[in-house]
Design a protein around this nucleic acid. Sequence first.
DNA 1: GACGTCAAGGGGCACC
DNA 2: GGTGCCCCTTGACGTC
Length: 310
Amino acid sequence: MAGRRHLESSTMAVLLQNDGMYKNCSGPLFSTGATTTTTATTTNGILGSWPLVSFEDCPGNNLTRPLFRQIELEDITGDGDGDGDFDDCLHHPEKKRRLTADQAQFLERSFEFENKLEPERKLQLAKALGLKPRQVAIWFQNRRARWKTKQLERDFEALKSSYDALKLDHGCLLKDKEELEAEVFSLTKRLVQREKKGSELQPHKLPNLDSGFEVKKSQGQAMACKQEDISAANSTILDSESPHCNIDEGGYSMLMELTGSSNAFELDNSDRSQIGEVDDANDCGLLSLEDDSGGYAVKVAEQGFWLWSN
DNA sequence: GACGTCAAGGGGCACC
DNA sequence: GGTGCCCCTTGACGTC
């Protein structure tokens, strides 16, 4: 909510002079009655002139009041005798009156140039509009409050739009995730079924593990993973929302391949670049996962981890 | 009469 | 202490 302080008061005077507002004012801007013509001037010259009402018309009030509309004078003077109304004027606080459209428009233009009000400019505007400086200050305060409210509304709308877009995107991602989960589940199910059919792998190539699955680390460290743990492995895959995913902290890249069958995890040549660890593992004596019997093999490379089944 | 808008009142705060 | 600003509220007024 930064103020737009880029105009000097002389510029403001130009604004006043060029505004042309008062040139367009045919007839009195303010209340009529016993009128005096006053002239508003700025550092750049004469702006215009308009009738003023001397509030001296109302006994007890020594303020000059060119502010308000016809109705105000009528309220004060009544139809003729006026004595009772003068008493009202004396004993009741003056009612609130809205600024005229011209006054409001003039202040609005001033606000557009500069939403803060220096004392000098306040006096200039007050003089030009026939208002009390206090009124000009209050108008600017209220105007800043209205501007802030509008700004909050604009910010809210922007945030709401952003939120809606993110929500839509999130929904799409959730849908993708569900599809991938279903795909992984289906593939895992096929894998287990094939295992049960008794596909045999060469013992010297793939150890025959009763537990079904085993995970080893190629560089010495070994760990076992029972079949029921496949769910945990799946979970890892699912959480990654991608068949080729980074498990992150460890910098592990997980990769699945089912050879001998067409599936979503089959590697193409571009994927080969991601399995350097797998090739290295082969080089260091770990087993090829090709299934000579037309069966299947699964390999998961996590910087040297292998998962296989017989 | 309900409701919205706007000028103004008043308290609290920061600054000099 | 005076001044100006922000914020909330009040009261007058216009519109439906």
